[in-house]
Structures are given as C-alpha cells and as structure tokens.
C-alpha cells in the first residue's frame, strides 16, 4: 500500500528553482533513505511531503489511511532536534507520553497499553532512568534520543525522519537502524529518512532516493535520476 506518492514535484523559492522533476513512492514496509550533498534541499523536500511547504509544480499525496483502514499516523523528527524548545516545562516522561496523543488519545486518558508503549520506547533509547528529569537538563544527545523515543511511542504508520542520528555514536546508530528495519519488515511501517550515512544504512534500507545537482542549470537546483531499489538483507533484529 502506497503511503507517499511524489509526482513530478518542483519547488521554487520565489523565482529560483531548488527542486525539479522529483517522483517516487514510499509504500508500507519500505525503508527509504533520502541522500544528497549539503544544501541539496532534502529538508525542503520532506517539508513539501508533510504539507509544511506547497509544491510549485507537481503533486504530493499522503495516504489518508494505514493498511488496517485506520487514519494514517505520521511520526516526524525534524532536523537538529538538539536545539528544540529546551526551556519547555516538561519532564522526559511527559514529553514521550505526548507521542501517544495522536493515537486517538487527544480526548482520552492514557491507559496501560499507552504506558507500556512509552516505557518500551524510553527503554529502547536507554532513557527510562532519566524519565523524571526536566528536558532542559538533558545533553544534546539525550534530547535527540527522547525525540526518537517520542516518535516510537507514537507507533506511527509512517516515519519521516530528518537526519535523526546526528550526534549519536556508531553503536546507538546501529541499534536505531535495526529498530527501524524491524518496524518496516515486521510491522509494515513506511520509513523515509534523510541521512548522510548511506554507506551504513545500505544494508537496512530497501530504497535509495538520491538528489543530484542539475547540470546546465544556472541555479543551484537539484533533481533525481531514479529511485533505486536496494537488495534486501535479512533482518537480524527480532
């Protein structure tokens, strides 16, 4: 089932084109990585997909429903979460619990199942013991980890992640990629992730969308040649 469809998308900042002729799909169960050099408008593309920016040409469609016929839940981690609203008066637990709200809990109390999800998410990023800390007291890496925990607690159908592993060490990154691969492979989650570590992720992702600079363009404009299917490696994470 198709979660994201980008069809001949172009995006211009005023007159200057920054993205042109972008087309790809992300389905349920896909782990797609989006790469490109610095300034390749990767974040701009994600923001177009999420509806935060409007394409100048072409179209983007996000599915309304997930594979079970329920409302599609999107989990988004923006770039540089380390600089997030650090003075916000919230404990780590409160913030990660807020990830459950879009799961039909805007007007309902969180139940045991929600609490289990939250605990599991915090355990998976090694932040359970820090749950009563104020978020402003955390280091940059810890803030990154609770942002990831918040999205995992949400249990979204589609993950849209903008360089989520910035500042993470190699082992933490490996664990994170395994968790994502497990989510896509065994729970049919769709994943679109902007990354610079494409060599590391190659063995987890099954799609590679690369933004490349357009030749003969007077502007610093990016496009893509194709959406490459990568060979699937068996998951080692259960």
């Amino acid at each position: 089932m198709q979660y994201i469809e980008v069809n001949d998308l172009s995006f211009h900042y005023e007159e200057e084109p920054v993205l042109e002729n972008i087309s790809f799909k992300v389905n349920a169960g896909d782990f797609a990585m989006l790469t490109g050099e610095n300034g390749a408008a990767k974040t701009t593309l994600l923001r177009n997909i999420l509806g935060l920016l409007k394409p100048s040409k072409g179209s983007v469609s996000l599915a309304n429903e997930n594979i079970h016929g329920e409302k599609l839940v999107v989990g988004y981690i923006p770039q540089q979460v380390a600089s997030f609203n650090a003075g916000f008066p919230s404990t780590v637990l409160e913030l990660v619990q807020s990830g459950r709200y879009p799961r039909g809990k805007w007007f309902k109390k969180l139940d045991n199942e929600d609490r289990e999800h939250v605990e599991k998410a915090l355990q998976s990023v090694g932040m359970w013991n820090e749950r009563n800390k104020k978020i402003g007291e955390l280091s940059g890496g810890q803030k990154q980890r609770i942002s990831i925990a918040r999205v995992f607690a949400m249990d979204p159908d589609l993950f849209v992640l903008d360089e989520p592993t910035t500042g993470m060490d190699v082992n933490s990154r490996e664990e994170f990629y395994k968790l994502l691969k497990h989510s896509s492979e065994f729970h049919n989650k769709g994943i679109l992730m902007v990354t610079h570590d494409h060599e590391e992720i190659k063995r987890y992702a099954n799609k590679h969308i690369e933004l490349i600079r357009k030749e003969n363009s007077p502007w610093r404009c990016f496009s893509m040649d194709s959406c490459k299917e990568l060979s699937k490696h068996p998951s080692s994470f259960h």
Partner: peptide, 21 residues
C-alpha cells in the same frame, strides 16, 4: 482542561503538531 494535550503539542513544536494532524 479539554485541549491541554493539543496545546502542549502545539506549544512544544508547531510543525510536529501539524504533522500529528
């Protein structure tokens, strides 16, 4: 009382609030 969760989410980060619907 009714919209505390929505306002918490909106205030923490407007863009993730938008993507959360």
């Amino acid at each position: 009382g009714v919209f505390r969760k929505q306002m918490y989410t909106l205030t923490f980060d407007e863009e993730t609030a938008y993507t959360a619907g």
